[in-house]
Nucleic acid binder design. Structure first.
Lengths: 144, 144
DNA sequence: CATCTTGTATCACTCTATTGACACAAGGTG
DNA sequence: CACCTTGTGTCAATAGAGTGATACAAGATG
């Protein structure tokens, strides 16, 4: 669609998710996942932040809001937020809520390379877990 | 090194790990990891199999051997092996032990793409968790 | 066939994560 | 300043994963 092409020909990134959108599907919790709920929330939010989807100073939903949306205890979401803050990805404040810290998106060339690999893996019929397995093996292989 | 270059100029893959090597470092368990020990063993072995590092019919260490090497309970390794078998990656047999099923390595072009991305991510100064985060975001983005 | 190998099953216990509810305290707003 | 917003802390209970040891049973080997 031309509507998704900027004037310089590069594709427009999708609009960043609102706080409501995070609990409405952008972040999900699968009870069958090997990691627990807190870790699933943490890692998905971290990915959105580092991948540039959640921009600097973007507001995250309140602990209670996200917990309600994801059907989790508030303390569980609070744990995920605490860990994001400990990692420097967000800052939290009473009354002010939680916001993304500036400068947490990773370098754009690496993000573009991730897209290339994701497309190739999909084209080869892999699922995400398999793609991640290949990355892990490739990571070991490129250690030297 | 020329010794690692095949006669057609392509790099030689490293030798596949022996059963002993799996418990001696090729597979590791980090108690601080968000996933539990069984899942860490399962996912690392799955990656080695799908990444072609463990070849068809390669023998895995016995449950007791790997458990001892990784300082886990045997039942925990047995759980990982059961899940690998349920996924069709391995076959287990009393007395015969556990072997990799043929045909479980994923397509070589996708593996090569994973290497390219791993190198690019390392060159950008990312760690593996960050690279996996970018892959997850890229995966969502290429869903259409 | 006898013996050995090795995965599977079982057990009581320990540990950890999560839960739902409530209270407190730090900030923000009008 | 009063009131509201929102993260943090606490609690007892629950659920699930892992533990180490043991026994059983299915296969493999000589």
């Amino acid at each position: 669609m031309n509507a998704s092409i900027a004037s310089d020909g590069s594709p427009r990134p999708p609009a960043p998710p609102t706080p409501e959108a995070l609990g409405a599907g952008a972040v999900t919790v699968d009870p069958a996942h090997p990691s627990g709920p807190a870790e699933q929330v943490r890692s998905q939010l971290a990915a959105l932040i580092q991948g540039g989807v959640l921009a600097a100073n973007a507001k995250l939903p309140t602990v209670r809001q996200l917990a309600g949306d994801l059907r989790l205890a508030a303390g569980t979401v609070a744990k995920a937020y605490r860990e994001l803050e400990a990692a420097g990805l967000v800052r939290t404040g009473r009354a002010a809520g939680t916001r993304v810290n500036p400068g947490q998106g990773l370098a754009a060339p690496a993000r573009a390379e991730a897209l290339v690999f994701a497309r190739a893996a999909r084209a080869a019929g892999l699922n995400l877990e398999q793609a991640q397995a290949l990355l892990a093996v490739g990571w070991d292989r490129t250690a030297s």
